[in-house]
Write a protein that binds this DNA or RNA. Sequence first.
DNA 1: GGTATAACCGACTAATCGAGTAGGATTTAG
DNA 2: CTAAATCCTACTCGATTAGTCGGTTATACC
Lengths: 155, 155
Amino acid sequence: MLFSTKAEYGVRLMVELGRQPGSEPVALSAVAEAERLPLSYLEHLVAKLRNAGLVTSTRGAHGGYQLARPATEISMDQVVEALEGQIAPMECFHEAPEGKVLCSHETDGYDACATKLLWTRVQGGVTKALAGTSLADLVEFAGPHERKESVGSAA
Amino acid sequence: MLFSTKAEYGVRLMVELGRQPGSEPVALSAVAEAERLPLSYLEHLVAKLRNAGLVTSTRGAHGGYQLARPATEISMDQVVEALEGQIAPMECFHEAPEGKVLCSHETDGYDACATKLLWTRVQGGVTKALAGTSLADLVEFAGPHERKESVGSAA
DNA sequence: GGTATAACCGACTAATCGAGTAGGATTTAG
DNA sequence: CTAAATCCTACTCGATTAGTCGGTTATACC
């Protein structure tokens, strides 16, 4: 599996925030309920998103979370990276300052790492897919909230 | 990390086989030595490659492994999939018979899975990169064997 | 000021997976 | 027969994932 549920849950959390019309913060418990995810686990994930500057939080009563920027300006590579850490296809891949890719196998005078070409291409493909998708794309794809409350609030 | 060392080691093993000029089988111990990888671990990996029909084995003395097909006809998605299992970005992704992608979240009458668009794109990127690279590409990239023995056999 | 609400924080746990080891059984060339 | 190899199963150890739990701090509202 390329990614874990951290990315899955975290992205869904972000989409949920992006679907909110108003500018008021949304309580995490509301997100947890809407997405049927464990609240206490979401707390860990949203902390990562906050540390990455993707969401802002308001403490206290009527507090909650909001997107730090409009959804059109949040690309999914930032989101996934915040949640899963550096996106590299392989342990030995280190991102060099100027966007270059280093392979730790090359350091030990051994002949050129045979797998580098492959992992570079894979990483390129993933990065392109993630960076080329904005949160707004996903929000639009998900469509407006099909209000479960309209049915469920009575029950 | 997208992939584990299983893919890394396994691909290097395949490249090593692809670099062999003759048609004689290569002992796994030779590969292990050349790539500085633990032999007993490679045994597990090569078993997967054999089950996937990517290499053939010859038992007994002077036995070993060979590519089942020319390197130009082995695409890396087959190799990586044999080693790592189904290439899916997320647990909930199931490959349907006709190449369609199913998301298990969609089965529970819940509204369309917001993440599906993203993971589909990611999977597309990875698959394209892997399928578009043949073992022959990597063999060529790695270059001919820089015979370490010419230096190392004396030491 | 008190209270309910909600973010924040750290420690803990169970299950799974990765990476590797170990030991033997089987096959085959010489 | 024996050495060289594949083959096979079981086991260990550590890291990571997916949570849970308990408590602390901040704040709106009465």
